[in-house]
Simulated assay, not measured.
Amino acid sequence: MDDFDRPILSVNHLSKQFGPGCIHCSSGQSDSLIKNYCPTCGTVYACHDISFDLYPGEVFGIVGESGSGKSTLMQCLYFDQEVTEGEALITSYKNGEANIFEESSQQKRYIRNHQMGKVYQNPMLGLRMGFSSIGNIAEKLIAAGGRNVGAMEARGRELLEHVNIPIRRMKEPPKNFSGGMQQRVQIAKALSNNPPILLLDEVTTGLDLSVQANVLDLIKKLQRELNISMIIVSHDLGVIRMLADRTMVMLDGKVIEYGLTDQILEDPQHRYTQQLVHSLL
């Protein structure tokens, strides 16, 4: 099989629930649920039976309203949350034969440092605001085993230039920067070890429109130049339309539609997706 025909990441039957479940809601599909919430025991089925593939060089979009489960899914993939069940396989990790969710905490750290980068909606989750910008990048490099100070500084400079942060400001902490600049430092940090997969969670939310456009242009440019595989989560179908090759639509913790982005925009099948597309027009 050609490497480009083989997914770089396969996610199969991923589920995440908050709460123990009960006889009324144990399947996560019961009629007794209010959206994805069980009023009897208080369990929330944040993600239910999610499966998808990500291919080399692809931008995969996940769209849905707040509470749809898309950010929880990203947290599970980056080990910020433990899954309830399911598997994820990365081709470049143990030849795609190991379920990363069942690996040891040490191996999960390795995967976070070498196989994936993540850019959070809130830069405070992805950056140390009191460290210098180049220090944030060095932290990621050190976590991956970097020890050569000169090489790390050179890599930090290269990345900050790449994301349009002036080198004269590389010793400044991100707390001095605007929201858009903080996101660009996050992107530089996430890319520091050349991960094959980049996770982007609502990276333009809360930014001014002109700043949003700059960040999205940067993401497109980096994807073209590095041919990196990306998963980008947004509640904004306009962002997904601009970036994603294929798109998955989530509602109440479930996948309700999945296909080529153009296809979903031109011929949405689910009523919720139709409303999303209509709101974009």
Rank of each mutant, 00 (worst) to 15 (best):
residue 2 D to A: 13
residue 7 P to I: 06
residue 10 S to C: 15
residue 16 K to F: 10
residue 17 Q to E: 11
residue 18 F to P: 11
residue 19 G to L: 07
residue 19 G to C: 07
residue 19 G to H: 01
residue 21 G to K: 07
residue 23 I to V: 12
residue 23 I to S: 15
residue 24 H to N: 14
residue 25 C to G: 06
residue 29 Q to T: 06
residue 30 S to H: 06
residue 33 L to I: 01
residue 37 Y to Q: 06
residue 39 P to Y: 00
residue 40 T to Q: 09
residue 42 G to C: 14
residue 43 T to D: 04
residue 45 Y to M: 00
residue 46 A to L: 04
residue 47 C to Y: 04
residue 52 F to D: 04
residue 52 F to L: 15
residue 56 P to Y: 08
residue 58 E to Q: 12
residue 59 V to M: 14
residue 60 F to V: 03
residue 60 F to C: 13
residue 61 G to T: 05
residue 62 I to F: 01
residue 64 G to C: 05
residue 68 S to E: 03
residue 69 G to T: 10
residue 70 K to H: 08
residue 70 K to V: 04
residue 72 T to W: 05
residue 75 Q to N: 15
residue 79 F to G: 09
residue 85 E to K: 14
residue 87 E to Q: 10
residue 88 A to D: 08
residue 90 I to K: 05
residue 93 Y to E: 05
residue 94 K to V: 13
residue 94 K to T: 08
residue 95 N to H: 12
residue 101 F to H: 10
residue 105 S to H: 13
residue 105 S to Y: 01
residue 106 Q to I: 08
residue 107 Q to F: 08
residue 109 R to Y: 11
residue 110 Y to T: 12
residue 111 I to T: 07
residue 112 R to V: 00
residue 121 Q to K: 01
residue 125 L to F: 14
residue 127 L to R: 14
residue 128 R to P: 06
residue 128 R to I: 15
residue 128 R to D: 12
residue 132 S to K: 03
residue 133 S to A: 14
residue 142 I to C: 08
residue 142 I to M: 07
residue 143 A to S: 13
residue 147 R to Y: 03
residue 149 V to I: 12
residue 151 A to V: 13
residue 152 M to N: 10
residue 153 E to V: 09
residue 154 A to Q: 15
residue 155 R to N: 14
residue 156 G to F: 04
residue 158 E to I: 03
residue 163 V to T: 03
residue 163 V to Q: 02
residue 164 N to L: 09
residue 168 R to S: 15
residue 173 P to Q: 02
residue 175 K to H: 15
residue 175 K to F: 14
residue 177 F to E: 11
residue 179 G to H: 00
residue 180 G to D: 00
residue 180 G to E: 01
residue 183 Q to K: 10
residue 194 N to I: 11
residue 194 N to Y: 10
residue 195 P to N: 12
residue 195 P to R: 04
residue 198 L to T: 09
residue 198 L to H: 13
residue 201 D to I: 00
residue 202 E to V: 00
residue 211 V to D: 00
residue 211 V to P: 00
residue 211 V to T: 03
residue 213 A to D: 04
residue 213 A to G: 08
residue 214 N to T: 02
residue 215 V to H: 01
residue 216 L to W: 00
residue 218 L to D: 06
residue 219 I to K: 03
residue 222 L to N: 04
residue 222 L to M: 11
residue 224 R to P: 01
residue 224 R to T: 12
residue 225 E to Y: 03
residue 227 N to W: 05
residue 227 N to G: 08
residue 229 S to I: 07
residue 229 S to W: 07
residue 232 I to N: 06
residue 234 S to G: 11
residue 235 H to L: 12
residue 242 M to P: 04
residue 242 M to E: 14
residue 244 A to P: 06
residue 246 R to C: 07
residue 246 R to G: 10
residue 247 T to V: 13
residue 249 V to E: 13
residue 252 D to R: 02
residue 253 G to C: 05
residue 253 G to W: 02
residue 254 K to F: 04
residue 254 K to E: 03
residue 259 G to S: 08
residue 260 L to N: 12
residue 260 L to E: 15
residue 261 T to R: 02
residue 261 T to K: 00
residue 264 I to W: 03
residue 266 E to H: 11
residue 266 E to R: 12
residue 266 E to I: 01
residue 270 H to I: 05
residue 271 R to F: 04
residue 277 V to Q: 05
residue 279 S to I: 10
